[in-house]
Design a protein around this nucleic acid. Structure first.
Lengths: 155, 155
DNA sequence: AGTCTCAAGTCAACATAGTTGACATGAAAG
DNA sequence: CTTTCATGTCAACTATGTTGACTTGAGACT
């Protein structure tokens, strides 16, 4: 039973299967952990965490995004955004400037340093995915995407 | 902003793709959300949440598990287990008894009420998976499992 | 007897990630 | 010159976790 189950640990536990889809539930849980584990360790070394990464990830893919739009995309309150975003601004990983015409809003952008950290953190996650897709082949990867889309868009 | 995307937040956002695997990262995120959304709403109605569900899920599949083993499986500290487990005991969803021979440990079991809640909550998650697997077919489901196993076991 | 260990329980302080509500500020638009 | 909009900030709160420092209760070992 015991292993190095400490870190974020949690090797996959040996549980009885009560239903045929229990394995799928557990794979979703451990899959999420497996994908984010190394990225989170890297971010922790930088004094950052998952919320910071989410901000960096979105701003990287929507340069000049306004704060209000960022709040929408992230789905959190402005008060919740406040602390992590201010840290990123203080650390100069993100810069804000006023919009030229829409002078009320502030537009966010990553600095070079911010881009570097975003890229490295996301790369840890992409590498996990790449290896898994390589093993599964192109058709397996496509099937995984199709299933995940169905789950994500489930209403 | 519409409130529909508020609650569970976060419709899938339209972000630029910087790398070919960005879509996969986002699908993992939204997939996790999609699978757990309804279950979390049901649990909230019962005054419970994800940690309570994790406990119920594990104890359901390991009847007479000792507290120490439960801590190992969940990968959290005993202090973190304390509150949610005590709530489950107070609400009589879980019962503990001393082991007959190993009298030092306490063994945990679900009551009928605990089984009912565990089953319903997990069923919400299984139903999401079932629908996605039905769409993808048996081979798609198998491919999804294979990819997730590779991700989960990534070291 | 007494002591040592093990499993569990508890207390306190802290960190992180979020929530509401209330209010302030600075620029634009009427 | 007042309203509106986007942003910012203060405070109080909840939830989920962490360490560290104990205590308790039961077995096990001289």
């Amino acid at each position: 039973m015991a292993k190095a189950s400490q870190a974020a640990g949690l090797h996959r536990a040996a549980l009885d299967q009560l239903h045929d889809l229990d394995a799928a539930l557990e794979l979703m849980y451990y899959g999420w952990r497996g994908m984010t584990l190394e990225a989170d360790e890297y971010l922790a070394k930088q004094g950052l965490s998952r919320p910071h990464h989410r901000i960096l990830y979105v701003v990287a893919r929507r340069p000049d995004i306004a704060i209000g739009s960022l709040l929408e995309v992230l789905g959190i309150s402005k008060q919740a955004l406040n602390r992590p975003l201010n840290l990123l601004l203080e650390r100069k990983l993100v810069v804000s400037k006023r919009s030229p015409e829409q002078h009320r809003s502030k537009l966010l952008r990553l600095t070079a340093a911010g881009q570097r950290i975003e890229h490295r953190a996301s790369d840890y996650e992409r590498n996990v995915m790449r290896k898994a897709f390589d093993r599964a082949g192109a058709s397996g990867a496509a099937a995984w995407m199709a299933v995940m889309e169905a789950i994500a868009d489930h209403n």
